[in-house]
Structures are given as C-alpha cells and as structure tokens.
Simulated scan of single mutants.
Amino acid sequence: MAGRCTRRYEREAGRLGFLRIAGVDEVGRGALFGPVVAAAVILNPARRIPGLDDSKKLTAARRRLLSEKILERAVAWAVAEVLPERIDAWNIYQASRQAMERALKDLKPPADFILSDAMRLELPIPCRAVIHGDARSVSIAAASILAKVYRDRLLEDWDREFPGYGLARHKGYATREHLARLRQQGPTPLHRRSFAPVRESLAILHAAEQNPLPF
C-alpha cells in the first residue's frame, strides 16, 4: 500500500537541516505519442495546499485547480520535456531521468534536497527515491500534478494538429481507439517509433505499400 500523502518526508529532510526540498516526478512514460514531461516543485511550508495527491487519483478539474494553487504558492517550480526523437534515441527510462534532472536544474532558487518518485538521479544534490512517492509525499504529488496538467494541455493542442487519433481523450496512451487509428492512419511525427505498437503500425503500412490491393 502506498499510504497517505503527507509531509513526512519533507519533515525528515528538514530535521537534517535542508531548507529547499524539491519533489520531482514525470508523466507520459508509457504513452505512444508525445514527450515525457517532468516537473519539480519546492513547496512553501507556510502556504499549505490541501488535497495534494497522486495526479492519477484526481479528476482533470481537480488537477487544474490544484495546479493553479501550486503555481501561486510554491517557492519554485519548473517543467521540462523530452521529445519523442530523443526518447527513441535514448530509451524511455533515460529520457524520463533527463526530463526530471532538467526540471530540477531549472528551479530558482535551487533545491538543496530532492524527493523523487522512485528514481535515482545523477545530480550533486542529496536525493531520496520514494516508492509510490506521488501518493506519499506532498512535494512529489505537486510535481506529478503540474507535469500532468502541462502534458494534457499539450495533447489537447496536438489533437487539433493531428485530428483523427483521439489524442485529447487518451493523451497518447495505448487505448483500443489509439491502436486502431495507428493501424489505419500510421504514426505522426510525434509518435515514438521505438515503441512496439508504433513499429507494428509502420510495418503494416509498409506491407500495404508493397502489396497494394488490385483494382
């Protein structure tokens, strides 16, 4: 069980003398389309935000409301993304870590301690990787909410640019609708070609081009 989302990990870091404790998380890791997005947040202990939790547990409307409060009340926040071409070149694990590290490097003021959602990071700052961190640490939860709201808005914009795939509904994940559209229409430039369903859709299109139906 993940447990309740509290300030436990932030308090423990504070007792060690750390003052600017950042939570960091990513979204879009399992999607077939679009970037992986990470956010980093340093919350202000004097300006609490009730209701912070794993973004996956919240409705879209609740995430948007909490996102506005985070942007207003946080000491610092930053968002970073890694595009599909880099995901394909590196792999999704490395791309996710790069996005998280970029977001942390963009924090102003910088963090002096990091709470990450289960991932070890290669930064010269003390870091604690918390399993199910987005459901256990308010700072990681805040980061997960910012990243999710940011990425969802990107997908809603791209839904207009690439109509017919249903991107605004499934946000690039491998739903039945998305897989069917991939097979019918092929991938867009923002689909991740290193992911098996996208590769398979390319193979189907290539086979159709090599063996056209007779008139």
Rank of each mutant, 00 (worst) to 15 (best):
E156D: 14
L146V: 14
S96Q: 06
D134H: 03
P212S: 00
Q185P: 00
D159G: 06
A2Y: 05
L43C: 11
Y165C: 09
A103F: 07
L146F: 13
A168W: 06
E26D: 07
S201F: 11
A22D: 02
G51W: 11
L83R: 07
F195Y: 12
I204N: 01
R11P: 03
I49S: 12
S139A: 15
E161G: 03
L179G: 06
E122P: 05
R160I: 09
R192Y: 14
L52G: 15
F215Y: 06
S55V: 09
D117I: 06
A76N: 06
P187F: 02
G51E: 10
R20C: 09
Q184G: 00
Q210S: 02
I92H: 13
Q98H: 06
R86S: 05
R7H: 14
A46G: 11
A95T: 03
P35F: 13
R8S: 09
P126L: 00
P163S: 08
E81D: 01
D88L: 10
L58V: 14
D53W: 10
L167F: 14
R29F: 14
W77Y: 15
L104W: 12
A174F: 02
R199I: 07
E12I: 07
A22R: 03
C127P: 04
G34K: 02
R15F: 11
L202I: 13
R176V: 00
M100Q: 05
K171Q: 04
R102P: 03
P84C: 13
F215T: 06
L190A: 08
K171S: 02
L202K: 09
R62K: 15
V138Q: 15
G23F: 02
A80W: 08
E85A: 09
A39F: 03
R136L: 10
L107Y: 08
M119L: 15
R176G: 04
E81G: 00
K69S: 05
A74H: 03
G133W: 00
L155G: 01
P109E: 14
E72P: 00
F18C: 00
R4C: 07
V198I: 13
N211K: 06
Q98L: 13
L83E: 07
A207I: 04
N211I: 03
L123D: 08
L16Q: 15
A196W: 13
L154M: 15
V149E: 10
P126D: 04
I125P: 09
M100L: 05
G164I: 04
A143L: 01
D134S: 00
A13V: 03
R128N: 08
F18R: 01
L71N: 04
F113I: 05
A168P: 07
L115M: 11
L16S: 12
V36P: 00
D54P: 15
W90R: 09
F18P: 01
A39M: 05
R47F: 09
I49M: 12
R8W: 11
F195K: 05
L52Q: 14
G30F: 14
C5K: 04
H132E: 13
P45E: 11
